[in-house]
């Protein structure tokens, strides 16, 4: 019985991925991608990876989906009907004749790209062979993770890996988010935001944002704290706080300009910076990089998680706000050649 749920979920995720890549319009592509991400989140939950499920649903489907929808305003404006964006990639066929799968792919080319398809087929065969033939159980690093859990300062194994055994990865990850933000700023106008003193009072969105924003903040904090014992933690909290920022921004609150620029800079770099300083401090105390003193490991992890979550949330909000303002209606900037 339960095997059929897994087979159904796996088939559904593959079908959604194929439909997503062959959808005739970009809008359909985005919404199928949403559905794909959420189906995948269910698959993570079935595989016992609840932390991953939350992260996938929140960042992989939610946040990226929001960015993709915002990008639709550039690539497929709503005023022109949704099918018009087909002309861009259907060089060979008109929108009328490319009714289904053929349109988004290389309709103009006579021959299929054989090499990529051959590579894909080889990868497919190898991975499937691994899946079906190489059956063994136990092993991996589970035992090691379990043995050391008592010395990690937390009770949830995934948090222990993220913030203790492999804090190096997590530290650099916070850095990657920061670098992505800086790179996105560099692509645009360098990260300045239009000052919005005037709050657009939408009669529904404004009161809803007043109710939902504190709730999101609270649930984010709850998840952050919960990460010590159960699925949850810094990234899940960060996405909820980021969602709060995005909601407030979209409801018209002056999120990006309410703090002085230097405060934003402090907020954005706090996670990465404090993480690094703590690592250096432990190292100068004779330990290894990120080797927490045993007695304070739990509290130190909570501190690092809080700051990392704040930084990532600020970065997500800033990335979205910047994306949103990239679509300037008065796009009169002179392109530098």
């Amino acid at each position: 019985m339960s095997v059929w749920i897994d087979i159904l979920l796996a088939t559904l995720s593959v079908a959604l991925a194929v439909r997503c890549l062959t959808a005739p319009t970009l809008a359909q592509c985005v919404f199928l991608f949403f559905a794909f991400g959420l189906t995948l989140a269910l698959a993570w939950a079935r595989l016992g990876a609840v932390d991953v499920a939350i992260a996938e649903a929140a960042i992989g489907a939610g946040f990226l989906g929001v960015l993709l929808i915002d990008a639709l305003r550039d690539f497929a404006p709503a005023k022109e009907a949704t099918v018009e964006d087909a002309e861009g990639y259907a060089a060979g066929g008109s929108a009328a004749e490319g009714s289904a799968a053929g349109v988004p792919l290389r309709a103009g080319r006579a021959a299929l790209p054989l090499l990529p398809l051959a590579i894909a087929a080889v990868v497919f065969v190898l991975l499937t062979a691994e899946a079906v033939l190489n059956v063994r159980d136990g092993g991996g690093l589970t035992e090691l993770a379990q043995e050391n859990l008592a010395r990690s300062g937390v009770d949830h194994p995934v948090t222990a890996v993220l913030l203790n055994y492999r804090s190096y990865d997590t530290w650099l990850e916070v850095g990657v988010v920061l670098i992505a933000l800086l790179a996105i700023f560099a692509v645009g106008n360098g990260g300045t935001f239009a000052r919005r003193d005037h709050v657009t009072h939408d009669p529904v969105l404004e009161p809803v944002s007043r109710i939902l924003a504190p709730v999101l903040f609270l649930i984010g904090g709850f998840l952050l704290f919960l990460g010590k014992y159960e699925p949850g933690g810094a990234f899940q909290a960060a996405v909820l706080w980021g969602a709060m920022g995005i909601l407030l921004y979209l409801a018209g609150w002056p999120v990006m300009t309410c703090l002085p620029r230097v405060w934003w800079q402090v907020l954005l770099t706090a996670g990465f910076g404090v993480f690094m300083l703590l690592g250096l401090a432990f190292m100068s105390g004779g330990g290894a990089w990120f080797e927490y003193p045993l007695a304070h490991a739990g509290n130190l992890i909570l501190l690092i998680e809080t700051l990392a979550a704040l930084s990532i949330a600020a970065a997500l909000t800033a990335i979205f706000a910047f994306f949103h303002e990239m679509h300037a209606p008065d796009a009169t900037e002179t392109p530098e050649k």
Binding site: W44, L47, A49, A55, R136, D137, L141, T142, Q146, P157
Partner: peptide, 25 residues
């Protein structure tokens, strides 16, 4: 994550889970 589930004892192998969370971000 599938390999993590294969290597599960009391809980699934947390190392791939952490890698995937990092990877998603």
């Amino acid at each position: 994550v599938s390999f993590a589930e294969r290597d599960a004892l009391e809980f699934a192998d947390p190392v791939p889970h952490a890698m995937v969370i990092t990877g998603i971000v």
